[in-house]
């Protein structure tokens, strides 16, 4: 499959602040591509350059084969953008908003009408279609925002932190919608600082920090990069923690961590479920009473921490 978004060596400075420091990106057509990074990593700047809102200081990018600096209008015809804020008109109704954006895409009026109705129904907004947006909830606004960016059936959809500030139920609702879109063949470039979101939606993930790509791969590949699984054991008392650490050390592939206050011991392991059996035997032999034991995959939080040295959601 061909790459529908290609960025090479993008640089953007705002005064002394370097937002992008030679960013490279290749997004294959028809995939969900996750751009992951903490606040200030350069995610939004990257999206703004690719959607023709900002010009890069150096480097080049093409979207659907069109250069974003030289052919901005050609790019605009094939993209949809949903930003961090619900960029819809507060005073218009849902339907009026969609009509306005459809008209500004220069779509045929009859088609705008049809497509608006289709989108309003699909996004569960049909009942509220003719009410002013001032009566909409945050989740409804985001859904309308997404609907507005889909009115012209864009080949490429840019979602810049689409669920920031939404309650968990609305977030999951929006995820479902995004999954449907990809099933239709739309390419999605998603930026997020929520690791579970990238995990849920994106096949390919690029981790950026300080305007540069620091890791790239599938969610699983990134987790493997951190190394294997995590064995988590809860023991029945503080004294048992030390014994458990000693008992698990021969099985671990790295340092065994003890969280004494929680009676918790975490060991990086490899070898899947057989290691679980070995661990229980070893603990039993050492006379440790186990209250709970689990084998889990590292989360993207573990990935992020090991790559950048700081957690994803803390301000950088």
């Amino acid at each position: 499959m061909s790459d529908i978004i290609v960025a090479v060596g993008l640089v953007k400075k705002f005064g002394d602040v370097v937002a992008l420091d030679g960013l490279d990106l290749r997004v294959p057509e028809g995939t969900v591509y996750g751009l992951l990074g903490p606040n200030g990593a350069g995610k939004t700047t990257c999206v703004r350059i690719l959607t023709t809102l900002l010009k890069p200081d150096a480097g080049a990018a093409t979207v659907a084969g069109f250069d974003v600096v030289k052919r901005p209008n050609a790019v605009r015809r094939v993209i949809g953008l949903t930003g961090q804020y619900a960029a819809v008109d507060e005073y218009l109704s849902g339907r009026e908003n969609l009509r306005m954006f459809g008209d500004l895409y220069h779509l045929a009026p009859g088609y705008v009408k049809e497509r608006s109705q289709e989108l309003l129904e699909r996004f569960d907004l049909a009942d509220a279609a003719d009410r002013s947006l001032r009566t909409y909830s945050g989740g409804m606004r985001r859904r309308l925002d997404l609907a507005a960016s889909l009115i012209a059936k864009p080949r490429i959809l840019f979602l810049d932190e689409p669920t920031t500030g939404l309650d968990p139920r609305s977030r999951i609702g929006l995820w479902e919608v995004i999954k449907d879109l990809v099933a239709d063949g739309t390419t999605v470039l998603l930026t997020t600082q929520y690791l579970d979101e990238a995990d849920q939606l994106a096949e390919d993930i690029v981790v950026i920090d300080h305007g540069r790509v620091i890791a790239h791969g599938t969610s699983d590949a990134l987790k493997d990069q951190v190394g294997g699984d995590r064995l988590e054991v809860i023991v029945d008392g503080r004294e048992a923690v030390v014994t458990a650490v000693e008992a698990l050390r021969p099985l671990a592939t790295g340092e065994v961590l003890a969280e004494v206050a929680d009676h918790r011991v975490v060991a990086p392991v490899s070898g899947g479920s057989t290691v679980l059996v070995d661990a229980i035997r070893a603990l039993d032999a050492a006379g440790v009473r186990v209250e709970d034991v689990a084998l889990r995959r590292p989360t993207l939080d573990d990935v992020f921490l090991s790559l950048t040295g700081h957690a994803a959601e803390e301000e950088s």
Binding site: R48, T51, T52, L53, N73, R76, R77, I79, L81, G83, Q84, Y85, A86, A87, V88, D89, E90, F101, L104, Y105, H106, A148, S149
Partner: peptide
């Protein structure tokens, strides 16, 4: 401030519109 100018600017519309 609301970001609606960003959206307008991402549309293939006339820039004076």
């Amino acid at each position: 401030h609301r970001g609606i100018i960003d959206r307008f600017r991402s549309l293939p519309m006339a820039s004076g519109g």
